[in-house]
Design a protein around this nucleic acid. Sequence first.
RNA 1: GGAGAAUUGGCAGAGUGGUCGAAUGCGGCAGUCUUGAAAACUGUUGUACCGUAAGGUACCGGGGGUUCGAAUCCCUCAUUCUCCGCCA
Length: 422
Amino acid sequence: MLEINRIREQKEEIIDALKVRNLEVKDQIESILEVDARWRKAKMQLEEVAAESNKISKEIGQLFAQGKQDEANAAKSKTQELKEQEKDLKQLVNDLATELQEKLYDIPNVPDPLVPKGNSEEDNEEVEKGGVIPELKNGQSHWDLAKKYNLIDFELGVKVTGAGFPFYIGQGARLQRALINFFLDQARDQGYTEIIPPLVVNEASGIGTGQLPDKEGQMYHAEVDDLYLIPTAEVPLTNMYRDVIVKQEDFPIQVTGYTPCFRREAGSYGKDVRGLNRLHQFDKVEIVRIEHPDNSYHALSEMVDYVKSLVEKLELPYRILRLCGGDLGFTSALTYDFEVFSAAQEKWLEVSSVSNFETFQANRLKLRFKDENKKSQLAHTLNGSALALPRIMAALLENNQTADGIKVPEVLVPYTGFNTIK
RNA sequence: GGAGAAUUGGCAGAGUGGUCGAAUGCGGCAGUCUUGAAAACUGUUGUACCGUAAGGUACCGGGGGUUCGAAUCCCUCAUUCUCCGCCA
């Protein structure tokens, strides 16, 4: 959520910047400022009336204390009208505050100047490319390989749960666990503190990181308890710092966590959903940073470098994309996507998304720090996948297949305990 | 799941209808003393919002209510603790 102060002060800049997202928000912004002005006016009136009525109440108290019952009772009647006014104004102020809030929720984050204009993923800007795309002869897709070596059972998942909830079996399960451990160890070496968070969160947490109310339908909702299954560890990891004022010397705050992620993926059927390409439950290691505003873009590039180091160690061909305005997430100011090439499908698969949210999440989270002048300021939040497992697994299986089995990348062998899947 | 108790400022802990944004202690900050430090003493010390300012408003777990007036009374939700039950 954008700060109302910023909208008051930088109206034109915000309207211009949001054009990169192909949005024309002039009318929305005007409407926000108009409601804001009405809210402030009503609030001022309310406070005047409240001040008056507080004053009279105090006087009544004093009259009673002096034993002047009659005068006190007379004063009581004076407050009747004030009370009515106060009640009406309070209602008005609340209504306007709610209206303002709802309007603010509808405005996405202001893109960083680096974000290119564009409509869809085709307009994303490739900033880097690395690794070698293997040449396969009669390459098999990962779902065929998974069946051949009995690594993943998709049909069993359908029986027990539903589509998109596969079983990982034997060497498949071990490879998965190896990847998780590898990623966590790497993150720890980079100074991230490992966290095992809850996998379900309450509504306030969903709002804090921006999943609610924007993407309500994408989360599994346990209605009896009004809790949501997390779609990413970002939600609990970032909400650790909701309503927190951190010390400036605590920066940078770096946490990482492995969690399963649950996504309803409502509306995405058809292509790109075969095998591991799109699941309702998948494993992911996430990295989260809380930063001083002056350092957040430096932190972002460190995170990008770190994720790059992971795909390089796994010897996967990759490319890094700077997301264009049309593809940029609602809450993000700047996002880099990592894609790896899955050689049998001959497709680029997104395996990481690294973003700086600046103060957009922090504003909802009330995540602040005290600056040099002991004033509280909103912190910047960032996060990135490091990495999402299924598509990494897909690319590993496809790219490393040989006639004699599937070769495990060297860095993983200490974790798997085997170097070939047979 | 059942019964009971509790939730107050950074922490501890008073406060059961009026002058309480809240005693007191600890902690923090500033000063006196000291070569320096400690101790002692003195002063100071919550947050957010509105307002150019003066100032004002709100906040004693969350929400709602009673009252001219609520930290204090009522309802409700959450959390914590104790006892009972069940259980990995």
